[in-house]
Structure formats: structure tokens, C-alpha cells
Design a binder for these strands. Structure first.
Lengths: 337, 337
DNA sequence: ATTAGCACTCTCTGTCTGAGAGTGCTAACG
DNA sequence: CGTTAGCACTCTCAGACAGAGAGTGCTAAT
């Protein structure tokens, strides 16, 4: 158990390190904060904190740096959140409301806004519904012997697929087919749609219905993950070497980030979770932390909002902002269904 | 005018520099290629080439490095293209044919394939039609008081927009409206659609028609530009310092790259152009070269395929591959219209 | 015209040194 | 007993320096 003074020192060490990115020395702590004790006392306390695993030493004659446990304790007990000011709330909300083009555009914008607000990588995943259903589909004639199948799902997705036409039909006939098939398919899930396809007499009908079933179920990792803010994040001193920067660029790929974030999140909407260093389980990204929150609607679909950054991250700022954006999205998502 | 020997030497210098990324010395040239002359002779010739501006010197005791003029001459007169082997042609074509999901997915895949094939940044822009026309639009009811407008254009775009509904209508009524409006709008361009909106009696009809007109005209830079291959490109030695790498990451943003590439391309389909260093006109990217080609169909829409990389780029490989992908796309694009 | 030879230049690497920053420990102090 | 002054010790960092190595440019001989 930490004494009150140890806790105070730990807080200062973490804060100062987050701010300066430099190891924190006992003397600088005393001077900057006009502590009523000498640096030797701080050194003694620091040695304790180090024994207990809260902070470390890069080398003998360097100041102290928070260890994972130190950040953990800081986030849980020592930190005061830096709330999203009303002004900033309005800005974010306003920007989000600029969206005209549907769910995808909206998720992408959310990632961009969040990234800009916290200066790190922001990730937003599309809300996953246990079983999506078809709302409406439409066949549009393409040049030549194929048609474009456009399907709108009840989870907000709009997906397309090119389907061959054995007998070129013209838009008129495609419209008829569209109406006929919609009548049978709309409201169905993937399995039910597939079952329907099996019963179909007409081969072309069956093929289209199967295509719709695939679209309902489809999840492409990249397309479902919206990521922004890498450029800004790379300017932080943790990436100030070619190897580290290159590694970071490699690591921040949509599919990988998505796996990490999906794994880190909880089902519980409204809860914001922080995973520091190895806590998130991706051995290759030990120096990264994740702040993650779920959003969703009454219908039970759940998506993820997250920020990724170096363990030396401004948790005070990041946590409330992730939470705020997630909350906002939970409210807004109803509208694009 | 270069003598034959000078040209031969220049070719070797460029080739070796492209391969090794190290300044090329007179001795290494003689040894590696068993030249029938001494290094001193090469040195004399090199001095000439330097006087004429084909190559340079990083410093007194370093080997030679191609200057822009050297690359230029190499690309135009000295280089033998490394054709895309039938095997590779099949692979690329096969990958491109994997596309199921329509134009966007297809352009994005093309960029990925090209990037992988040349190991640099590949950019593909959507084919722009002078005036696109509406093929078909569909209204789908969303939860609450809005509807999703999905429009398919004759240039292959599928665009969506959320539109408010003043009086919640139900999908039935939306279908009626869809049919009514399609009958009036389909085949129209942006201006004609806008004109139509002005004549409309019904306010909601007019609003939807206006929205469609906007969608027909819409061009969002990011969404219209598909880019891949940055990760691989960053591994090249030209980016082996934090500042350069960071700069490269900043520079390779969709909107900027698009501007560069659109500016560099020619209207002439089938022609592949190479712009080296300052030739492309973006003063901030002097160390980059662009290989660019246009693709399009008989209808006159033109898109761009390009590769961006350091001036020290394997032009022999890159040029034929850009050309091949562009040709392929010209053929394939007919199918997704 | 070509080339051997050599002086000259510049970079690169490793070593060393001194300065500086911090800690850890000890002993003294209140 | 907690606190602190003092100091030895450790480690890093920047700069200086030297020597090796790589290349060129020039000159004179072939």
C-alpha cells in the first residue's frame, strides 16, 4: 500500500513524464513543485516506489520513468479526468452532424475528429449486429452482361456486388425482378436468405439471393475499420528513431488494430476501458496503450471507439474524449438505421 | 551529345546506383562489369558527364550519383524496359478479377496490386466523366424520421445520402416515390437534375432531386483516391532518417498525391509518362518521381494510375507495370459501368 | 587517347575525455 | 525515527581526435 506521500510523488512523476517525455529526477520534482522536502527524501521514496514496481530506471544515473503498474495506478486512483469542455463538445457534435452520406462516412469522420482531439491514433469499428437483415436491394443494369446489386442492410451498411446476367434484361426487367425479390427477401437474415435461395426455381433469382445472403454476412476487416491520426502520433518522441517509426507504421494496419481493439473492448456500453502496455495482450505492441469504449443502440449492435498511443499518453484527456465520442455515437446511431 | 562510351557509363552508373543506393565509384564500375579500360579513364569520362549535368558528387571523395538529367536520359534512351512476364500478367489479371463489389473496391485493389508489384506507393484515381448521369436511385426508410437515398451513377459510382422525411412515410410510399422520381430523373446529368428540382411542385420531391443532383456532381478528394504501398516504400534507404520518414508520411496524403498525379497525367490514354524530381512541379517533393498513365473507356472518362517513389526508382520495372495496369483497367472498366 | 601513380579530400569509425546529471548510501541532525 | 547534507559512484552525452578507407583529380609517362 502506498502512503499518501508516495502516491503524491507517483502522481507527479507520471504527470511530469507524460508532459516532458524525459525521465523525472528527484531534484526537478522538488524544484518544479516547490515540495517541502529535500530531493534526498524524494529519492528514498522513489526507491520504495521502484521496489514496489511502480516506476523504473532506464539506467543508474537517470531519473525515474513510470512502469506499467505506475500508469495503472495513476489511471485508476491518482488522475483527475480533464473533462470535455462544453465548447469542445459543441465543436465535436457539430462536426459529426456534418455527415450527409450515411454510416460509413460518419464512422470515418468520427475517427478523424477523435484523432485530432487527442493527437493519437483513433479507431472506430462499425457496429456489429448479431444477425443483420436485409432492408432493401436493388438491381441496376451495367454496361454489357452484368448488373450491379446494391443492398441496404438494417445495420446501416450499403453494400454492392457485380452479378452476371445470363440473358441481358434491360432495366425494366431488372426492376421487376427487384420488386419480386424484395418482397421475398426483405427483413430476412443471412441464413433465412440462403434457405430461400435453395427453394428458388429460377437460377438467376437463386444466384442473386445467394449474393444477397453473402452481403448480409460479409465482414471485410479493412472496410469495417476506420482509422486516423497516425501522422500526428508519429511525431511523438517515442517514435524518434527509424526502426521505431517504421515498426509503428507497420503495426497500425487496419486489420491488426481491429483485432486488438475488438479483443480489448467490453460488451458493456458506456464503460471506458484502459489497457496499458502488455495488458492488451498483443506481444508485439508492448509500448502501446489502448483506451477503448463500446457504443451501440437498443437493438444490441455494438461497435468500438478507441484511441491507441504510446503508454506515455495523456490519459486525462484521452479517456473522457473516447467516452464522449462513444456516447455521442450511441445516440446518433439510431438516426442512420 | 554523349559519346557511345559515355552513354554506356551513364547507364551503368544509373543502374548500379538504383540497385545499391550507394554512390558509384570508378573502380567498382570497372571491376563489377569487367570494363576493358582503367578506372582512370572512367574517371575522366565521369568528369565530363558531371560537367554536362548528368551526374553529381555528394562530396569530393565520394562516387557519382545520377542527377535528374541523368535519370531523364536513362529513362528516355538508355533503359531497356523489363516487361511484365506472362506469369505476372496472369497473376495481376487474376487478382483484379477477384473483385465482386463494384468500382470502389476494384480501384482500391488495383492500387494494392500495383504497389505490391513495384514496391512503391501506387495511386489510382476514379475515372472522371465530364458529366455523369444518374442511372438509378432508391429511397430506403431509416429508423425514425429520415431516409437513405442511394444513387447509382453511370460512371460506376454508388453514393448515399441521408435525407430527412418531414412526414414519415413507410417503405411502401418511399417505393412509390422512388419509381416516380426515377422515371423523371434517370439519365439526367447534374444540371438537368437541378433544373428539374426547380420545376417540382412537391417540396420533398424537390429536396430529394436536389440531393441527387449534388451526388451526381460530388467529388470528394480522399474518397476518390486510392493509395497503397507506403509501408513498403518507407523501407527504402532514402527514408532512413526520422525527418525524412516523417516528411514522407506527411506528403503521401490522398489529397496532395491526387493533385500531383492529376497535374502530371496526360489526357492521352495508353501513354505512360515519367516525371523525375522537380519535373512534376511540387516543390516540396523534389526527391520523388512519378510514373503516371491514364486509363479510360470509349465514353471518354479518364482516370489515373500512378506510382510514386524516390527518384532512385526501378524505372525499368515500374513503367511497364504502370502501363500494364492502366491498359488492363481501360479494358475492365467497361464491365463495371 | 589511355593509364599508372600519387597527392589530396572527405567520410566514417572508434577511442578517449570531461562535463553533467542522477542516484544510492552514509552519517549527522532535530 | 524520519529527514537531510554530502559525497562517491555510475552512466550518458557531446566533442575532439586520429587513423583507415574510399574516391577523385591531376600529372606525367606510354
Amino acid at each position: 500500500m502506498l502512503t499518501e506521500r508516495q502516491a503524491a510523488i507517483l502522481r507527479l512523476v507520471v504527470q511530469q513524464y507524460i508532459e516532458t517525455a524525459e525521465p523525472v529526477s528527484s531534484r526537478s520534482l522538488v524544484e518544479k513543485h516547490r515540495l517541502p522536502v529535500s530531493s534526498a527524501t524524494i529519492r528514498n521514496e522513489m526507491a520504495r516506489l521502484e521496489d514496489d514496481g511502480y516506476i523504473t530506471h532506464p539506467h543508474t544515473s537517470a531519473g525515474r520513468v513510470p512502469a506499467e503498474l505506475g500508469y495503472r495506478h495513476y489511471v485508476e486512483s491518482l488522475m483527475a479526468e480533464d473533462p470535455v469542455a462544453p465548447e469542445e463538445q459543441r465543436t465535436i457534435e457539430h462536426q459529426l452532424h456534418q455527415v450527409l452520406g450515411g454510416l460509413d462516412e460518419w464512422l470515418s469522420l468520427a475517427a478523424t475528429i477523435l484523432a485530432a482531439s487527442v493527437g493519437n491514433v483513433a479507431v472506430v469499428t462499425r457496429p456489429q449486429v448479431a444477425g443483420a437483415h436485409l432492408k432493401h436491394m436493388q438491381l441496376v443494369e451495367l454496361h454489357g452482361d452484368s448488373a450491379l446489386l446494391v443492398a441496404v442492410m438494417d445495420d446501416g451498411r450499403v453494400r454492392q456486388r457485380i452479378v452476371p446476367q445470363h440473358s441481358p434484361a434491360g432495366q425494366e426487367l431488372l426492376n421487376e425482378r427487384t420488386i419480386r425479390l424484395n418482397a421475398q427477401m426483405s427483413g430476412r437474415g443471412a441464413a433465412a436468405t440462403l434457405a430461400l435461395a435453395a427453394e428458388m426455381g429460377d437460377i438467376e433469382d437463386a444466384m442473386i439471393v445467394r449474393a444477397v445472403a453473402e452481403l448480409i454476412e460479409e465482414q471485410r476487416y479493412t472496410d469495417e475499420t476506420f482509422l486516423d491520426g497516425l501522422r500526428a502520433a508519429l511525431e511523438q518522441p517515442e517514435f524518434a528513431s527509424v526502426e521505431r517509426m517504421l515498426l509503428a507504421v507497420q503495426q497500425m494496419q487496419a486489420y491488426r488494430v481491429r483485432r486488438l481493439v475488438e479483443h480489448a473492448r467490453t460488451e458493456r456500453i458506456g464503460l471506458t476501458r484502459v489497457l496499458i502496455g502488455r495488458e492488451h495482450g498483443d506481444e508485439g505492441m508492448l509500448e502501446w496503450s489502448v483506451v477503448v469504449s463500446s457504443y451501440g443502440d437498443a437493438a444490441g449492435s455494438v461497435g468500438t471507439v478507441a484511441v491507441l498511443g504510446p503508454t506515455r499518453m495523456r490519459y486525462e484527456r484521452t479517456i473522457p474524449r473516447v467516452r464522449y465520442v462513444a456516447t455521442l455515437m450511441s445516440h446518433l446511431i439510431e438516426g442512420v438505421r
